[in-house]
């Protein structure tokens, strides 16, 4: 059975098309979902794609996190459905409380778009189980508010429980402990600031290092 992965489009979502392409390249089936939907159409997993939902107004991800579909996303995530929030999707996951912490303005205050090296530090999540521990990946970042912030206590908890999924090799935005991606304790919900969906086709992206995230969710079957 092909894994059906829902890709939710909010007003202002931009990378939904890229996420769908990446899911298909990874062996899954992308199922478009609309933010005003109330149910998840029976999908097996969810991607909250990048972009500027609601123009990033108020706080990035804040207005999208109260969209009608998010109740179902939160409920399903708590029951174990794999959810990947990329960039703006990561911001939404923090706003809903599914993941701890918050994303704030980059240290240099500018939007930054460039490939960055990250290292995978947790290979037990639903979205990273196809990687070897400590694999280095080249994945584009593109964000203005990608600086991961969390209380000291929260940070200790993340580190103690191994919930940091990826770290930047050269921290581009001031994120605490170089954090590029985190997960919840169950490992089904992952938020990542870099864009693995922009690293699945060398002709039009930054290499193919992002494919592993999508293999992880779809499995590789012959």
């Amino acid at each position: 059975m092909t894994t059906r992965v829902g890709v939710i489009t909010f007003p202002g979502t931009l990378d939904d098309r890229d996420a769908a392409t990446a899911i298909a390249l990874g062996g899954g089936e992308a199922v478009p979902l609309w933010h005003k939907d109330k149910d998840l159409n029976g999908v097996d997993a969810i991607v909250l794609p990048g972009g500027f939902s609601y123009g990033d107004y108020l706080r990035a991800g804040a207005l999208a996190s109260v969209s009608p579909i998010m109740d179902a996303v939160v409920d399903s995530a708590k029951e174990g459905m794999p959810v990947l929030g990329i960039c703006n999707g990561f911001q939404m996951l923090c706003e809903t409380g599914l993941l701890p912490g918050a994303l704030t303005r980059n240290e240099n205050l500018n939007f930054i778009c460039r490939p960055e090296l990250i290292t995978i530090t947790n290979t037990k999540t639903s979205w990273t189980n196809f990687f070897q521990p400590n694999t280095e990946l080249l994945i584009p970042i593109k964000n203005g508010e990608g600086c991961y912030q969390i209380s000291d206590e929260g940070l200790k908890n993340l580190e103690a429980k191994g919930l940091v999924v990826a770290r930047y090799n050269n921290n581009p935005n001031g994120s605490k402990n170089d954090i590029a991606a985190i997960c919840n304790e169950a490992g089904n919900v992952v938020g990542i600031m870099p864009h693995p969906e922009h690293a699945v086709d060398g002709l039009v992206g930054a290499g193919v290092d992002g494919l592993g995230f999508f293999w992880s969710i779809a499995g590789v079957t012959v």
């Binding site: 098309r17 939007f111 778009c113 584009p140 593109k142 969906e197 039009v204």
Partner: peptide, 17 residues
Amino acid sequence: KGWITEQYDRYVRGDTV
């Protein structure tokens, strides 16, 4: 001019060659 062009998204839509 990377200081400028890095402030622009070049990847979105997945067709930038």
